[in-house]
């Protein structure tokens, strides 16, 4: 069963942390279409957070089309997300890791790295729409 975690002081509301973890799990293939998510009660007890927060996260997931609740059975993830194929993930993440190592060697701080990634993504998006 999928395991959640919630960080204090991250600045991200707990229910959004849960939603993001499912989204990322689907993108990276840790979660597959049809997988059952743990019950609200189980998540609340395991992570020690308010059950209403877990219920809110599950409603968000349903709203986003990432999960569906089946009465009496539980909540299941749907495949409504473009997954990164395992081979592509392996190939590209390797090159990305190399790039991050280069950036660190060049003395870039994390926020500088993030700014660069954002800038390149913005450039590409602009080129596509042009």
């Amino acid at each position: 069963m999928f395991a959640f975690r919630v960080l204090d002081r991250s600045g991200v509301p707990a229910y959004l942390q849960l939603v993001d973890q499912v989204r990322r799990g689907l993108l990276l293939g840790h979660l597959q279409e049809g997988d059952q998510l743990p019950t609200v009660r189980a998540v609340a007890s395991a992570v020690v957070i308010n059950p209403n927060t877990v219920a809110k996260a599950y409603r968000e997931l349903e709203h986003a089309g990432l999960a569906v609740a089946r009465a009496g059975q539980g909540t299941f993830v749907t495949g409504n997300i473009e997954q990164v194929p395992a081979a592509t993930y392996a190939r590209l993440s390797g090159r990305l890791r190399q790039w991050f190592a280069d950036a660190r060697e060049a003395g870039l701080a994390p926020e500088q790295v993030r700014a660069m990634v954002d800038a390149v993504m913005d450039d590409e998006r602009r080129r596509e729409t042009a």
Partner: peptide, 8 residues
């Protein structure tokens, strides 16, 4: 943890 389990 005990409290949350009871509430749930």
């Amino acid at each position: 943890k005990t409290l949350i389990a009871a509430v749930a």
